[in-house]
Measured scan of single mutants.
Amino acid sequence: MQIFVKTLTGKTITLEVEPSDTIENVKAKIQDKEGIPPDQQRLIFAGKQLEDGRTLSDYNIQKESTLHLVLR
């Protein structure tokens, strides 16, 4: 499924993921596309910060959901 990741600069990254993918996994995909190390990434969905060990389905993230990427 496709999800979108919006950065603070207003750029939107499109990722191909599975509901069973972990947040860690998603961060690795963002690193592949954008070169941002996962340890600098914070992903936010519905106002919650997403934890590395959880999966997209844990957070009920469905196709075409938009996550927000904050760098630390």
Rank of each mutant, 00 (worst) to 15 (best):
I61A: 02
Q2E: 13
P19G: 07
I30K: 00
S20F: 10
A28V: 12
D52E: 05
L56N: 01
I61C: 02
R54F: 14
L43M: 04
D21W: 12
I36P: 12
Q31Y: 10
T55N: 13
V5T: 02
Q40F: 13
H68C: 03
T55S: 13
I36M: 06
T22W: 11
N25H: 10
P37E: 15
G10S: 09
R72I: 10
K27T: 03
K27M: 06
K29W: 09
K6M: 11
M1C: 02
I23T: 12
Q49K: 06
S20V: 08
K11L: 15
K63P: 15
S57V: 12
L15N: 00
H68E: 09
Q62Y: 14
D39G: 14
E34Q: 11
E51L: 08
I3Y: 01
E64R: 08
E16V: 07
I44R: 07
P19E: 14
L71Q: 12
L15V: 04
G35N: 12
I23K: 01
L67Y: 01
V5I: 08
P38E: 14
T7K: 08
N60F: 13
Q31V: 08
L8T: 15
T22F: 10
E51I: 08
L67P: 01
L8W: 08
S57T: 06
Q49Y: 14
E18A: 09
E34L: 06
H68Y: 04
N25R: 11
I13R: 03
G53R: 12
R72L: 12
T14C: 02
L71G: 08
I23P: 04
F4L: 07
D32E: 08
K6W: 06
K6I: 15
L15H: 01
I36C: 02
V17I: 05
L56P: 01
R54Y: 12
L8Y: 12
S65R: 03
Y59R: 01
P19R: 13
R42Q: 08
S65I: 09
T9P: 08
G53F: 14
D21H: 10
Q49V: 08
V17Y: 08
D21V: 07
T22S: 13
L67T: 02
P37Q: 15
D39S: 08
A46C: 02
D52C: 03
K48P: 01
T7I: 06
A46M: 05
D39L: 13
L43G: 00
Q49S: 12
V5W: 01
T12S: 06
G10A: 13
Q41P: 02
Y59T: 02
G53I: 14
E64D: 13
I3G: 00
R72S: 14
L71D: 13
E51C: 02
K11R: 07
N60V: 11
I61H: 00
I61S: 01
G53M: 08
I61G: 01
I30L: 14
P37A: 14
E18S: 05
Q31M: 08
A28R: 11
D32Y: 08
T12V: 12
K63D: 09
K27H: 03
I13L: 11
H68A: 04
E18F: 13
Q2K: 09
S65V: 04
G10Y: 06
E16F: 14
P37H: 07
P38S: 15
Q49R: 06
I13A: 03
L71A: 11
M1P: 02
A28H: 11
G47N: 14
Q31S: 08
G53V: 13
G47C: 03
